[in-house]
Design a protein around this nucleic acid. Structure first.
Lengths: 138, 138
DNA sequence: CTATTACCCTATCGGTTTACTAGGTTTTAG
DNA sequence: CTAAAACCTAGTAAACCGATAGGGTAATAG
C-alpha cells in the first residue's frame, strides 16, 4: 500500500509540473488545490527538495519549483525516495536489499521467484512513466 | 510490502503442496522446516482453512491438507485472503475499492492512472502463477 | 527599516497494524 | 486413558502512520 505521504508527494510534483512558467509555487496553493494538510505537505516538499527533485525560494513570492524537466523524472525515483523499496519483499529489492532471516537459501524459496516477477513488472511501468506522463494525463 | 503473515502462508501452502501423498501435515513439521514460529503459523493455517484453501484433521496424526489441486490455486486468491488488496491504492482496487477523500475526481488524478497500470501488471503475474508453479520452482 | 511572507526545523501524539506469545479447550488415534 | 494435534481467546510490545503544534529563520516588497 502506498502511504499518503507518497501519494501527496506525487500529486504535488504533478501540480508543479503542470505550471507553464517556472515561477515558484507556494505550499498553500498546492494544499488548497489538492486537499492536503498544509503542514504535512510542507514536510513532504522539504524532503523532495533535499533529495534533489525541487528547488525552493524563500520570502514573498517564494515557493517550490522543479529543478529538472518533467520528462527527466522517472516515477521509480520519486517512489523510492518517498516510499522506499518498490519490491514487495526486501530480499528481491534492488535498492533496499535485506536478507530474510527465515530463508537459508533464496534460490529454493517459493516466494522469492514470484516476487521477482512482480517487482520487474512494476519496475517496467514505473520506469517508463515520467512526471510529464502523469502530469498531462488528464 | 508483503507482511510476514502472507509470506509464511505462501511458504506453508507450497510446503504442503510439495508432499506427494495427501496425508495431513502438522504445523510443527512446517514450522521447523520453514523456520516459522509455530504459534504464529497455527493462526495463519487456521485462516487458510476458514477461507477454503485447506482442510484439517484434529487429534493424533492430524494436520492440514490441500482441498484443491495446486494448479487450481491462483496466487491472486491467496494474497487477497492473507494480505488484502493487491493494488497500491484503494481507489484502484478491484476487490477492496475505496474512494479517496482528497480526490474530487478520479479521472483527473495523476496517481490514479499510474496505479491502475501497476495493478494490472501485478495482477497479470499473480494471476498466471498457481501454487503448483511456485511449489515446484526449486 | 519593517512587516510580511513562506520556507525550515523539531517534537509530540493518538491511532492502527504487525508479529508474536500465553494458556487453555476440544478432538482423535492407539 | 493419554498423548498429540488442531482450535480458540486474549493480550502485548514495538513499530509505523498521518497529522499537529509551535515556533525559527531567511528573503523581499514597499
Amino acid at each position: 500500500m502506498l502511504s499518503k505521504k507518497t501519494k501527496y508527494g506525487i500529486k504535488a510534483l504533478a501540480y508543479i509540473a503542470r505550471k507553464k512558467d517556472r515561477k515558484p509555487v507556494q505550499t498553500s496553493e498546492i494544499s488548497e488545490s489538492e486537499n492536503i494538510s498544509q503542514k504535512f505537505l510542507e514536510s513532504i516538499l522539504l524532503e523532495l527538495r533535499k533529495s534533489g527533485f525541487l528547488g525552493s525560494k524563500k520570502g514573498k513570492g517564494g515557493g517550490y519549483y522543479l529543478i529538472k524537466e518533467p520528462e527527466e523524472i522517472k516515477m521509480t525515483a520519486v517512489i523510492r525516495v518517498l516510499e522506499g523499496p518498490i519490491a514487495m519483499v526486501p530480499c528481491v529489492s534492488l535498492n533496499y536489499y535485506e536478507k530474510c532471516d527465515d530463508c537459508p537459501d533464496e534460490n529454493t524459496c517459493a516466494v522469492h521467484k514470484l516476487m521477482i516477477q512482480v517487482r520487474d513488472a512494476s519496475l517496467n511501468i514505473l520506469g517508463e512513466n515520467t512526471l510529464r506522463d502523469i502530469a498531462t494525463s488528464q
